[in-house]
Protein backbone atom coordinates (compact mmCIF):
# COMPACT_ATOMS: atom_id res chain seq x y z
CA UNK A 1 0.00 0.00 0.00
CA UNK A 2 1.37 3.41 -0.86
CA UNK A 3 -1.62 5.62 -0.17
CA UNK A 4 -4.41 5.31 2.33
CA UNK A 5 -7.25 7.80 2.57
CA UNK A 6 -9.40 7.69 5.66
CA UNK A 7 -12.70 9.44 6.15
CA UNK A 8 -11.97 12.46 3.97
CA UNK A 9 -14.47 15.28 4.36
CA UNK A 10 -14.36 18.34 2.10
CA UNK A 11 -16.94 21.13 1.98
CA UNK A 12 -17.42 24.35 0.07
CA UNK A 13 -18.87 27.41 1.73
CA UNK A 14 -20.53 28.91 -1.34
CA UNK A 15 -23.04 31.72 -1.75
CA UNK A 16 -25.81 29.12 -2.11
CA UNK A 17 -24.87 27.53 1.19
CA UNK A 18 -22.63 24.69 2.26
CA UNK A 19 -21.82 22.19 -0.50
CA UNK A 20 -21.28 18.82 1.17
CA UNK A 21 -18.96 17.65 -1.60
CA UNK A 22 -16.98 14.84 0.04
CA UNK A 23 -18.63 12.97 2.87
CA UNK A 24 -16.21 10.49 4.33
CA UNK A 25 -14.22 8.90 1.52
CA UNK A 26 -12.11 5.82 2.29
CA UNK A 27 -9.78 3.98 -0.05
CA UNK A 28 -6.31 2.57 -0.37
CA UNK A 29 -3.94 2.40 -3.30
CA UNK A 30 -1.44 -0.41 -3.81
CA UNK A 31 1.93 0.12 -5.43
CA UNK A 32 1.82 -0.33 -9.19
CA UNK A 33 -1.92 -0.85 -9.50
CA UNK A 34 -4.41 1.00 -11.68
CA UNK A 35 -7.36 2.24 -9.69
CA UNK A 36 -10.26 3.63 -11.71
CA UNK A 37 -12.62 6.11 -10.08
CA UNK A 38 -16.06 6.29 -11.70
CA UNK A 39 -19.23 8.14 -10.84
CA UNK A 40 -21.53 10.72 -12.28
CA UNK A 41 -20.89 14.37 -12.64
CA UNK A 42 -20.63 16.03 -9.25
CA UNK A 43 -20.07 12.79 -7.34
CA UNK A 44 -16.79 14.12 -5.97
CA UNK A 45 -14.14 12.38 -8.07
CA UNK A 46 -12.09 15.50 -8.78
CA UNK A 47 -12.57 17.12 -5.39
CA UNK A 48 -11.34 13.94 -3.66
CA UNK A 49 -8.09 13.94 -5.60
CA UNK A 50 -7.66 17.70 -5.43
CA UNK A 51 -8.08 17.51 -1.65
CA UNK A 52 -5.17 15.07 -1.46
CA UNK A 53 -2.92 17.28 -3.56
CA UNK A 54 -3.68 20.52 -1.76
CA UNK A 55 -5.44 21.93 -4.81
CA UNK A 56 -8.75 22.88 -3.22
CA UNK A 57 -9.21 26.64 -3.29
CA UNK A 58 -9.56 27.67 0.36
CA UNK A 59 -11.90 29.52 0.75
CA UNK A 60 -14.52 28.58 -0.42
CA UNK A 61 -13.31 25.01 0.11
CA UNK A 62 -12.31 23.49 3.41
CA UNK A 63 -11.01 20.05 4.24
CA UNK A 64 -12.84 19.30 7.44
CA UNK A 65 -11.66 15.86 8.30
CA UNK A 66 -9.70 12.79 7.44
CA UNK A 67 -6.21 11.55 6.84
CA UNK A 68 -4.30 10.69 3.69
CA UNK A 69 -1.17 8.71 4.37
CA UNK A 70 1.55 8.45 1.79
CA UNK A 71 3.81 5.51 2.60
CA UNK A 72 7.45 5.41 1.64
CA UNK A 73 10.33 3.33 2.94
CA UNK A 74 8.34 2.28 5.97
CA UNK A 75 7.47 5.86 6.83
CA UNK A 76 4.12 7.52 6.57
CA UNK A 77 3.21 11.14 6.00
CA UNK A 78 -0.25 12.69 6.16
CA UNK A 79 -0.78 14.74 2.99
CA UNK A 80 -3.58 16.68 4.66
CA UNK A 81 -1.27 17.92 7.42
CA UNK A 82 1.48 19.18 5.14
CA UNK A 83 2.45 22.81 4.75
CA UNK A 84 1.94 24.46 1.37
CA UNK A 85 5.60 24.09 0.63
CA UNK A 86 5.69 20.40 1.57
CA UNK A 87 2.64 19.53 -0.51
CA UNK A 88 4.08 21.43 -3.48
CA UNK A 89 7.14 19.20 -3.26
CA UNK A 90 4.93 16.11 -3.33
CA UNK A 91 2.92 17.42 -6.26
CA UNK A 92 4.88 16.89 -9.40
CA UNK A 93 7.41 14.92 -7.35
CA UNK A 94 6.22 11.69 -5.75
CA UNK A 95 2.71 12.26 -7.04
CA UNK A 96 2.25 13.34 -10.64
CA UNK A 97 -1.05 14.47 -12.03
CA UNK A 98 -2.74 14.88 -15.40
CA UNK A 99 -5.85 16.92 -15.93
CA UNK A 100 -8.72 16.67 -18.33
CA UNK A 101 -7.92 19.87 -20.09
CA UNK A 102 -4.18 20.17 -20.74
CA UNK A 103 -4.47 23.66 -22.18
CA UNK A 104 -5.42 25.14 -18.84
CA UNK A 105 -2.76 23.28 -16.94
CA UNK A 106 0.13 24.11 -19.25
CA UNK A 107 1.69 27.54 -19.11
CA UNK A 108 0.92 29.14 -22.50
CA UNK A 109 3.88 31.53 -22.34
CA UNK A 110 6.57 28.95 -21.63
CA UNK A 111 8.00 26.42 -24.07
CA UNK A 112 6.99 22.82 -23.60
CA UNK A 113 10.57 21.75 -22.98
CA UNK A 114 11.20 24.37 -20.36
CA UNK A 115 8.07 23.39 -18.44
CA UNK A 116 9.24 19.81 -18.19
CA UNK A 117 12.89 20.63 -17.56
CA UNK A 118 11.99 23.10 -14.84
CA UNK A 119 10.18 20.50 -12.77
CA UNK A 120 13.23 18.25 -13.10
CA UNK A 121 15.62 20.91 -11.85
CA UNK A 122 13.21 21.66 -9.03
CA UNK A 123 12.39 18.12 -7.88
CA UNK A 124 15.41 16.09 -8.95
CA UNK A 125 18.08 18.77 -8.63
CA UNK A 126 19.36 18.27 -12.18
CA UNK A 127 21.35 21.05 -13.83
CA UNK A 128 20.02 22.76 -16.95
CA UNK A 129 21.91 20.64 -19.44
CA UNK A 130 21.00 17.34 -17.82
CA UNK A 131 17.40 18.42 -17.51
CA UNK A 132 17.25 19.31 -21.18
CA UNK A 133 18.74 15.98 -22.18
CA UNK A 134 16.31 14.03 -20.05
CA UNK A 135 13.38 16.12 -21.29
CA UNK A 136 14.17 15.31 -24.90
CA UNK A 137 14.42 11.62 -24.02
CA UNK A 138 11.12 11.82 -22.23
CA UNK A 139 9.37 13.63 -25.08
CA UNK A 140 10.62 10.88 -27.37
CA UNK A 141 9.34 8.30 -24.95
CA UNK A 142 5.82 9.74 -24.92
CA UNK A 143 5.76 9.73 -28.70
CA UNK A 144 6.51 13.32 -29.67
CA UNK A 145 8.34 13.02 -32.96
CA UNK A 146 11.34 15.28 -33.53
CA UNK A 147 11.60 15.95 -29.81
CA UNK A 148 14.82 17.93 -29.95
CA UNK A 149 13.20 20.60 -32.12
CA UNK A 150 9.85 20.37 -30.38
CA UNK A 151 11.52 21.27 -27.06
CA UNK A 152 11.16 24.92 -28.00
CA UNK A 153 7.51 24.78 -29.10
CA UNK A 154 4.71 26.46 -27.19
CA UNK A 155 1.59 24.60 -26.06
CA UNK A 156 -0.66 26.23 -28.68
CA UNK A 157 1.50 24.75 -31.43
CA UNK A 158 0.51 21.27 -30.31
CA UNK A 159 -2.68 19.33 -31.01
CA UNK A 160 -4.91 18.11 -28.17
CA UNK A 161 -3.40 14.63 -28.19
CA UNK A 162 0.17 15.96 -28.23
CA UNK A 163 -0.56 18.31 -25.33
CA UNK A 164 -1.89 15.41 -23.34
CA UNK A 165 1.35 13.54 -24.12
CA UNK A 166 3.26 16.53 -22.77
CA UNK A 167 1.13 16.47 -19.62
CA UNK A 168 1.98 12.81 -19.23
CA UNK A 169 5.67 13.59 -19.70
CA UNK A 170 5.47 16.22 -16.95
CA UNK A 171 3.56 13.84 -14.68
CA UNK A 172 6.18 11.09 -14.93
CA UNK A 173 9.23 13.36 -15.25
CA UNK A 174 10.24 13.20 -11.59
CA UNK A 175 9.93 9.47 -11.01
CA UNK A 176 6.60 9.56 -9.21
CA UNK A 177 5.18 6.64 -7.25
CA UNK A 178 1.64 7.68 -8.07
CA UNK A 179 0.08 9.42 -11.06
CA UNK A 180 -3.42 10.82 -10.68
CA UNK A 181 -5.15 11.32 -14.03
CA UNK A 182 -8.45 13.22 -14.02
CA UNK A 183 -10.42 12.32 -17.17
CA UNK A 184 -7.26 12.54 -19.25
CA UNK A 185 -8.91 11.34 -22.46
CA UNK A 186 -12.41 12.76 -22.22
CA UNK A 187 -11.60 15.67 -24.53
CA UNK A 188 -9.85 13.44 -27.06
CA UNK A 189 -11.05 11.40 -30.00
CA UNK A 190 -11.37 7.67 -29.52
CA UNK A 191 -8.46 6.78 -31.76
CA UNK A 192 -6.26 9.23 -29.83
CA UNK A 193 -7.70 7.98 -26.54
CA UNK A 194 -6.51 4.50 -27.49
CA UNK A 195 -3.00 5.90 -28.10
CA UNK A 196 -2.92 7.65 -24.73
CA UNK A 197 -4.18 4.62 -22.81
CA UNK A 198 -1.54 2.46 -24.46
CA UNK A 199 1.15 5.02 -23.61
CA UNK A 200 0.13 5.27 -19.97
CA UNK A 201 0.04 1.50 -19.61
CA UNK A 202 3.49 1.14 -21.16
CA UNK A 203 4.96 3.81 -18.88
CA UNK A 204 3.28 2.23 -15.90
CA UNK A 205 4.89 -1.12 -16.66
CA UNK A 206 8.30 0.41 -17.23
CA UNK A 207 8.26 2.67 -14.21
CA UNK A 208 6.07 0.70 -11.81
CA UNK A 209 3.77 3.61 -11.07
CA UNK A 210 0.40 3.32 -9.37
CA UNK A 211 -2.28 5.10 -11.37
CA UNK A 212 -5.54 6.66 -10.25
CA UNK A 213 -7.64 7.15 -13.38
CA UNK A 214 -10.80 9.21 -13.04
CA UNK A 215 -13.37 8.61 -15.75
CA UNK A 216 -17.08 8.32 -16.30
CA UNK A 217 -16.63 5.78 -19.09
CA UNK A 218 -17.18 2.24 -17.86
CA UNK A 219 -15.69 0.84 -21.03
CA UNK A 220 -12.41 2.63 -20.34
CA UNK A 221 -12.55 1.18 -16.84
CA UNK A 222 -13.02 -2.30 -18.28
CA UNK A 223 -10.06 -1.88 -20.60
CA UNK A 224 -7.45 -0.72 -18.12
CA UNK A 225 -8.35 -0.84 -14.43
CA UNK A 226 -7.21 -3.39 -11.86
CA UNK A 227 -9.62 -2.10 -9.27
CA UNK A 228 -12.55 0.32 -9.30
CA UNK A 229 -13.99 2.83 -6.87
CA UNK A 230 -17.57 3.82 -7.60
CA UNK A 231 -18.49 7.21 -6.17
CA UNK A 232 -21.93 8.62 -5.54
CA UNK A 233 -22.94 11.74 -3.63
CA UNK A 234 -19.45 12.37 -2.33
CA UNK A 235 -18.99 8.88 -0.93
CA UNK A 236 -17.43 5.65 -2.14
CA UNK A 237 -20.33 3.26 -2.63
CA UNK A 238 -18.37 0.32 -4.01
CA UNK A 239 -14.74 -0.78 -4.16
CA UNK A 240 -13.95 -3.94 -6.12
CA UNK A 241 -11.56 -5.69 -8.49
CA UNK A 242 -12.60 -4.89 -12.03
CA UNK A 243 -13.88 -8.38 -12.90
CA UNK A 244 -15.85 -8.61 -9.68
CA UNK A 245 -17.41 -5.23 -10.28
CA UNK A 246 -18.68 -6.17 -13.74
CA UNK A 247 -19.60 -9.78 -12.90
CA UNK A 248 -20.96 -9.31 -9.45
CA UNK A 249 -21.82 -5.69 -8.69
CA UNK A 250 -23.11 -5.23 -5.16
CA UNK A 251 -24.32 -1.68 -4.78
CA UNK A 252 -27.71 -0.87 -6.35
CA UNK A 253 -26.20 2.16 -8.09
CA UNK A 254 -23.47 0.06 -9.70
CA UNK A 255 -26.03 -2.58 -10.65
CA UNK A 256 -28.18 0.11 -12.26
CA UNK A 257 -25.24 1.71 -14.01
CA UNK A 258 -24.20 -1.55 -15.66
CA UNK A 259 -27.74 -2.15 -16.89
CA UNK A 260 -28.00 1.36 -18.25
CA UNK A 261 -25.24 1.00 -20.82
CA UNK A 262 -25.40 -1.14 -23.92
CA UNK A 263 -22.66 -3.69 -24.39
CA UNK A 264 -22.51 -5.29 -20.95
CA UNK A 265 -25.54 -7.48 -21.29
CA UNK A 266 -27.73 -5.75 -23.83
CA UNK A 267 -26.52 -5.60 -27.39
CA UNK A 268 -29.65 -5.26 -29.47
CA UNK A 269 -32.47 -2.80 -29.59
CA UNK A 270 -34.82 -5.64 -28.73
CA UNK A 271 -33.63 -5.43 -25.16
CA UNK A 272 -34.48 -2.31 -23.30
CA UNK A 273 -31.84 -0.43 -21.38
CA UNK A 274 -32.76 -0.05 -17.76
CA UNK A 275 -32.57 3.53 -16.71
CA UNK A 276 -32.06 4.75 -13.19
CA UNK A 277 -34.96 7.11 -12.67
CA UNK A 278 -34.52 10.34 -10.78
CA UNK A 279 -31.54 12.63 -10.50
CA UNK A 280 -28.29 12.76 -8.54
CA UNK A 281 -28.45 14.08 -4.97
CA UNK A 282 -28.48 17.68 -3.98
CA UNK A 283 -25.20 18.26 -2.16
CA UNK A 284 -26.46 21.39 -0.44
CA UNK A 285 -27.86 19.20 2.30
CA UNK A 286 -25.79 17.29 4.80
CA UNK A 287 -25.70 13.60 4.05
CA UNK A 288 -27.47 11.82 6.88
CA UNK A 289 -28.73 8.78 4.99
CA UNK A 290 -27.87 6.76 1.89
CA UNK A 291 -27.31 9.23 -0.97
CA UNK A 292 -28.78 6.74 -3.45
CA UNK A 293 -31.94 6.05 -1.44
CA UNK A 294 -34.27 8.39 -3.41
CA UNK A 295 -33.48 6.46 -6.62
CA UNK A 296 -33.05 3.00 -5.18
CA UNK A 297 -35.46 0.15 -5.85
CA UNK A 298 -34.32 -1.69 -2.71
CA UNK A 299 -34.79 1.21 -0.32
CA UNK A 300 -35.86 0.47 3.26
CA UNK A 301 -36.53 2.62 6.33
CA UNK A 302 -32.98 2.16 7.55
CA UNK A 303 -31.64 3.53 4.23
CA UNK A 304 -33.56 6.74 4.82
CA UNK A 305 -32.26 7.34 8.32
CA UNK A 306 -28.66 6.12 8.38
CA UNK A 307 -25.64 6.47 6.17
CA UNK A 308 -24.55 2.94 5.16
CA UNK A 309 -20.86 2.27 5.88
CA UNK A 310 -18.60 0.41 3.44
CA UNK A 311 -19.16 -3.24 4.32
CA UNK A 312 -16.64 -5.90 3.40
CA UNK A 313 -18.25 -8.58 1.23
CA UNK A 314 -15.15 -10.50 0.29
CA UNK A 315 -11.54 -9.62 0.98
CA UNK A 316 -11.27 -7.35 -2.04
CA UNK A 317 -14.85 -6.22 -2.43
CA UNK A 318 -16.69 -3.63 -0.37
CA UNK A 319 -20.02 -1.87 -0.81
CA UNK A 320 -21.94 0.73 1.18
CA UNK A 321 -25.47 -0.63 1.21
CA UNK A 322 -27.86 -1.98 3.80
CA UNK A 323 -29.58 -4.30 1.42
CA UNK A 324 -28.61 -7.92 1.70
CA UNK A 325 -27.31 -9.47 -1.50
CA UNK A 326 -29.43 -12.62 -1.20
CA UNK A 327 -32.60 -10.63 -0.64
CA UNK A 328 -31.61 -8.45 -3.55
CA UNK A 329 -31.49 -11.40 -5.91
CA UNK A 330 -34.98 -12.48 -4.95
CA UNK A 331 -36.31 -8.97 -5.27
CA UNK A 332 -34.70 -8.54 -8.66
CA UNK A 333 -36.48 -11.63 -9.95
CA UNK A 334 -39.75 -10.25 -8.68
CA UNK A 335 -39.10 -6.97 -10.41
CA UNK A 336 -38.32 -8.74 -13.66
CA UNK A 337 -41.47 -10.82 -13.46
CA UNK A 338 -43.52 -7.85 -12.45
CA UNK A 339 -42.75 -6.05 -15.67
Amino acid sequence: MILQVKNLITRFYSVDGVVYAINGVNFALDAGETLAVVGESGSGKSVTMMSLLGLIPQPPGKIEGGQAFLFENGEQQDLLKMSDQQIRRVRGGKVGFIFQDPISSLNPTMTIGKQIAESMTEHLGLNRLEARKRTVELLNEVGIADADRRFDSYPHEFSGGMRQRVMIAIAVACQPKIVIADEPTTALDVTVQAQIIELVQRLQEQLGIAIVWITHDLAVVASMADRVLVMYGGTVVEDALVNDLFDNPQHPYTIGLLKAIPGVTKMGAEERLESIEGAPPDLLRELTFCPFAPRCQFVSDQCLTELPPLITITKQHRAACFYDAEKRKIKEKEVEHGQ
Binding site: V190, T191, Q193, A194, I197, D217, L218, A219, V220, V221, A222, S223, M224, A225, V242, N243, F246, L258, I261, G263, V264
Partner: peptide, 11 residues
Protein backbone atom coordinates in the same frame (compact mmCIF):
# COMPACT_ATOMS: atom_id res chain seq x y z
CA UNK B 1 -11.01 -1.49 -32.30
CA UNK B 2 -10.14 1.78 -30.55
CA UNK B 3 -13.45 1.92 -28.74
CA UNK B 4 -13.23 -0.02 -25.50
CA UNK B 5 -16.06 -2.35 -24.59
CA UNK B 6 -17.50 -2.48 -21.09
CA UNK B 7 -16.36 -6.09 -20.65
CA UNK B 8 -13.11 -6.42 -18.73
CA UNK B 9 -12.35 -10.04 -19.63
CA UNK B 10 -12.85 -9.47 -23.32
CA UNK B 11 -10.89 -6.22 -23.20
Amino acid sequence: SAVPLPQPKLE
